[in-house]
Simulated scan of single mutants.
Amino acid sequence: MKLGSRFGWLWAAYAVSAAGTWLAFDAFALIALLVLHAGSAQVALLASAGPAVGALLAVPLGPWMEFRRKRPVMIAADLVRCAALLAVPAAHFLGVLGFGQLLLVSMVVAAADLTFTAASGAHLKSLVPRAGLLTATSRFESTTWTATVLGPPLGGAAVGLFGPVVTVAANALSFLLSALGIRAIDGAELAPERPPRDTTRPRTADLLDGWRHLLT
């Protein structure tokens, strides 16, 4: 089933960002070990910080995302990831890279990863007719699992050839390409219908709606 060029750009952007993410999957841990000579406790903290941020944001993100245009959110998430990751090789080459920066970047990237994924999935509904949603979703899932399976071993080879810092820079480039792909989607994105009250600014109550629902 043909899903159109607009979906094609979104799919390409998602694919290149997923490939970059999984290509550099172990790069931060290797930088911590090989460059910063971090201990096992620090490496464990680095590995858990990103998933912890994701767990905290996953539920509140839905209500926040619902009434916002998705493309600007995705582009912003890509640019945030690109800038945060580029700060790592820049700091390394300047000789000022520390474990604190690496930990902060991992959390920022994890939050932006989750934001991009949530926005891209929600944006499918406006790009693809209802009859094509199953096909579109299956292509996204296939892309995710292909990147998950092939990314780490290819990333290991890249780290062996170029080093973990260069691999992080390549990951940053993938997010820049993703942002350009989303920017290339033609046609204006309609603003979602808003409820009667003003939701132009995020409110604490909005961000806690998901967690409140689960706890109830």
Results as ranks from 00 to 15, higher is better:
residue 2 K to R: 15
residue 7 F to A: 07
residue 9 W to H: 15
residue 10 L to G: 05
residue 11 W to G: 08
residue 12 A to G: 12
residue 16 V to M: 09
residue 16 V to E: 03
residue 17 S to F: 09
residue 20 G to C: 09
residue 24 A to P: 02
residue 25 F to A: 12
residue 25 F to R: 07
residue 28 F to I: 06
residue 28 F to H: 04
residue 29 A to P: 01
residue 30 L to D: 01
residue 33 L to W: 03
residue 36 L to F: 01
residue 37 H to E: 00
residue 37 H to I: 00
residue 38 A to N: 02
residue 39 G to F: 13
residue 44 A to H: 08
residue 46 L to S: 01
residue 51 P to S: 07
residue 52 A to L: 15
residue 57 L to W: 07
residue 64 W to L: 15
residue 64 W to S: 09
residue 67 F to C: 11
residue 69 R to H: 07
residue 69 R to T: 09
residue 69 R to K: 15
residue 76 A to D: 07
residue 77 A to S: 15
residue 82 C to H: 02
residue 85 L to V: 08
residue 85 L to K: 02
residue 86 L to A: 15
residue 86 L to H: 05
residue 89 P to I: 02
residue 90 A to I: 08
residue 91 A to D: 02
residue 94 L to K: 07
residue 94 L to Q: 13
residue 94 L to P: 03
residue 96 V to G: 05
residue 100 G to R: 03
residue 100 G to P: 04
residue 100 G to Y: 00
residue 101 Q to T: 05
residue 103 L to N: 04
residue 106 S to R: 00
residue 107 M to E: 03
residue 107 M to S: 07
residue 108 V to P: 02
residue 110 A to D: 02
residue 113 D to A: 09
residue 114 L to E: 04
residue 114 L to C: 10
residue 115 T to N: 06
residue 118 A to N: 06
residue 118 A to H: 03
residue 124 L to Y: 01
residue 125 K to G: 10
residue 125 K to E: 11
residue 126 S to E: 13
residue 126 S to D: 14
residue 127 L to N: 00
residue 127 L to D: 00
residue 132 G to Q: 06
residue 135 T to M: 10
residue 136 A to F: 08
residue 136 A to V: 11
residue 138 S to G: 13
residue 139 R to P: 04
residue 140 F to Y: 12
residue 140 F to S: 12
residue 142 S to C: 12
residue 143 T to Q: 07
residue 145 W to E: 15
residue 145 W to R: 14
residue 145 W to A: 13
residue 148 T to E: 11
residue 149 V to G: 09
residue 152 P to D: 06
residue 154 L to E: 03
residue 156 G to W: 02
residue 157 A to L: 15
residue 158 A to G: 05
residue 158 A to R: 00
residue 159 V to Y: 00
residue 159 V to G: 01
residue 160 G to V: 04
residue 160 G to T: 03
residue 160 G to I: 05
residue 161 L to S: 13
residue 163 G to F: 05
residue 164 P to F: 01
residue 166 V to Y: 01
residue 167 T to L: 07
residue 168 V to K: 00
residue 169 A to R: 01
residue 169 A to F: 02
residue 176 L to Q: 03
residue 176 L to R: 02
residue 177 L to K: 04
residue 178 S to P: 06
residue 181 G to R: 00
residue 184 A to T: 12
residue 185 I to N: 06
residue 185 I to Y: 06
residue 189 E to T: 09
residue 189 E to W: 08
residue 189 E to F: 11
residue 190 L to S: 14
residue 190 L to E: 14
residue 191 A to N: 10
residue 191 A to T: 12
residue 191 A to M: 15
residue 192 P to T: 08
residue 194 R to V: 14
residue 196 P to K: 13
residue 201 R to N: 13
residue 205 A to S: 14
residue 205 A to R: 15
residue 206 D to Q: 14
residue 206 D to N: 10
residue 207 L to N: 03
residue 207 L to T: 04
residue 208 L to T: 13
residue 208 L to P: 04
residue 209 D to K: 13
residue 210 G to N: 04
residue 212 R to P: 08
residue 214 L to P: 09
residue 214 L to M: 14
residue 215 L to T: 14
residue 216 T to P: 07
